[in-house]
Write a protein that binds this DNA or RNA. Structure first.
Lengths: 196, 196
DNA sequence: TTGTATTCATACTAATTAGTATTTTTTATG
DNA sequence: CATAAAAAATACTAATTAGTATGAATACAA
């Protein structure tokens, strides 16, 4: 009951890395078991199908990462606009897991899988909704403590910020340069300041 | 020299539609020739490889569409902030080619192909750069005629707007509802008004 | 130790993939 | 009409794909 769950976890972690760089559908089981040095028998003992593994990646790898890097920085926020900016900057420029040329893992999966795989869509929308609500709540609390104007709509702002993050990640990919990140961050700061 | 280029064009158009909904790599030549009712011999007469066809889609299908729906509305703009808003709204809610559940064709291709196919990356970055420069120019002209503040950075604003568009397209996909589009548009209007 | 369930290993299958070789039909031009 | 080139049709190949069938180790409780 110990070594077994370890192999399961290494499969998920390695598979996540490959999928993050290459996409879900173009990542083959054969490639996953080759890099993890796990046999096909072991793989299919832990996961009934490839999609079951994909969903496990969302729930057991992506979700905790999201929790740690996208949710926690905004909880108990004292100055939400500042913390949102800091988090975005950290995600774009400092996070060791996220790479310029590979975009946002959740964004990638959303774009690739959502239109034709309902199970992935559901798992991802739950993930994303959590982030959205965290941002909304931080805006609400900022309205209460007066650091943000009364007439600001938290949901609108959340969509605006999240969209911007996903979008600029795509720009990073296509231009393959952090220059657009810096440019984006400057404008984000102006936008956030205008909420006060 | 006439019927031939017609079959070539139908291949590109049909292939584009399938790729838009399913992604490039999961769209097989067999599926393309089945839906276009063109034989494999004809396909490979017109395109040496699948990638050659993919690049032709970018240059011969995506580019003109981009020109028409993303560039033209901003040229000779008299009130850029208004026209940027109108264009975004039209793209999100009124464009008959773009579907809620399938996102932005250029964005999809960028995310899927850019990390590991340099030719696609180059073609797409050229496409996107054109849009970016059009937005920047419209901001510049608005600064000149005084409808936008002097201290606004056109490039930053361009990135911010384009990122938002790409990002909210992803949200439309995952939530599968135009509600987030409306919410986003409201906030976009506020953001654009703040540029004045 | 022995037996039993868990975990993993090996060798396969059927379907799908991009691409090719070859032949046939169509088109344009003298 | 004749003919050469362009355009398209047919039948294949070799590689890759997700998944399976079956057998072998391993762990662990009695």
């Amino acid at each position: 009951m110990k070594k077994s769950s370890a192999t399961r976890h290494t499969i998920l972690e390695k598979a996540f890395e490959i999928i993050y760089t290459k996409g879900y559908q173009t990542t083959s089981i054969d490639e996953i078991i080759a890099t993890t040095k796990v046999t096909k028998g072991a793989f299919y003992y832990h996961f009934k199908t490839k999609d079951e593994m994909g969903l496990a990646i969302i729930n057991e790898i992506l979700k905790p990462t999201m929790q740690n890097d996208f949710i926690k920085p905004l909880q108990n926020a004292k100055n939400p606009t500042q913390e949102i900016y800091d988090m975005t900057k950290a995600l774009l420029l400092e996070n060791p897991l996220l790479k310029l040329e590979y975009g946002c893992p959740a964004g990638n999966l959303t774009q690739e899988m959502t239109p034709w795989n309902a199970a992935f869509g559901k798992a991802l929308s739950e993930l994303i909704l959590e982030w959205q609500q965290t941002i909304e709540n931080s805006i609400k609390s900022a309205k209460e403590n007066g650091t943000i104007r009364e007439n600001v709509d938290p949901q609108q702002v959340a969509y605006f910020i999240m969209s911007g993050y996903w979008g600029i990640r795509n720009f990073g990919k296509v231009y393959n340069s952090t220059a657009c990140y810096h440019s984006y961050l400057k404008e984000l700061k102006i936008y956030l300041n205008n909420l006060a």
